[in-house]
Simulated assay, not measured.
Amino acid sequence: MQKHAYLIIANRNPGQLQTLLTLLDDSRNDIYLLVDRKSVGYPRDFQLNYATLFSVSPLVIDWGSYSQIEAEMRLFQAAAPGKYAYYHLLSGLDLPLANQDEIHAFFSAHPGKEFITYSSQASGVQF
């Protein structure tokens, strides 16, 4: 079984984060969660039944700044020793559009493929 790592940066709406965690709660997944330190009153203990949840030490994140990259790197560093088949970087406000069986079947059908795109169509940006 190839496991997936879900790397999540969260900063608000803990109810939606709990929904996301519930949708990712699968024994084929490990979940790494980093909560923005500025998030006051944010619960630090979420309940899962199948996936393992790892809390990554929080930091103050100014969205769109280098601190967001630091948060991503902190998550990747925490998850890297697991040598997962795939790493999924999410916001705590994201929700999957497919169930875990469909997601794992898709990635099993495309082993080793990366799914990253970029477009040079942005206005005023030239490459």
Rank of each mutant, 00 (worst) to 15 (best):
R12E: 14
Y42F: 15
K3I: 00
L21Q: 13
A51G: 10
G112T: 04
Q126M: 04
I31N: 05
L33K: 01
E114I: 09
G124K: 07
L34S: 05
Q68R: 02
I103L: 14
E72A: 13
S27E: 15
P81I: 00
Q126V: 14
L17Q: 08
F127I: 12
H104W: 11
F46N: 09
A109N: 12
A105F: 08
G92I: 07
F54V: 13
Y42H: 10
V40P: 02
L34Q: 14
P111L: 07
Q100G: 05
E114H: 14
L34A: 05
A109D: 09
L75Y: 01
Y118N: 12
P111M: 12
I8N: 07
A109P: 02
L95N: 03
D45S: 15
A51H: 09
S123D: 11
D26G: 05
V125N: 03
W63P: 03
Y118L: 13
W63C: 04
S65I: 01
Y32S: 02
E70D: 14
L24G: 12
P81E: 08
F76Q: 01
I9F: 01
L7N: 03
Q2S: 15
T22H: 13
P81Q: 05
N29W: 07
G124D: 11
L93W: 00
L23Q: 15
A51V: 03
L7M: 07
D45I: 11
A71W: 07
E114Q: 04
N99R: 09
S39G: 06
Y86L: 03
I61Y: 01
T117G: 14
T52S: 12
A79N: 06
Q16D: 06
L90H: 01
A10N: 10
S120P: 00
L89Q: 12
W63A: 05
D36R: 03
G124L: 07
V35P: 01
D62H: 11
A122Y: 07
V56H: 03
P81V: 04
I61W: 01
P111G: 09
I69L: 12
K38H: 08
S57L: 02
F76I: 09
S108V: 05
V56M: 01
L24M: 14
P14V: 05
Y6W: 15
S91F: 00
A78N: 00
S67A: 06
Q121L: 14
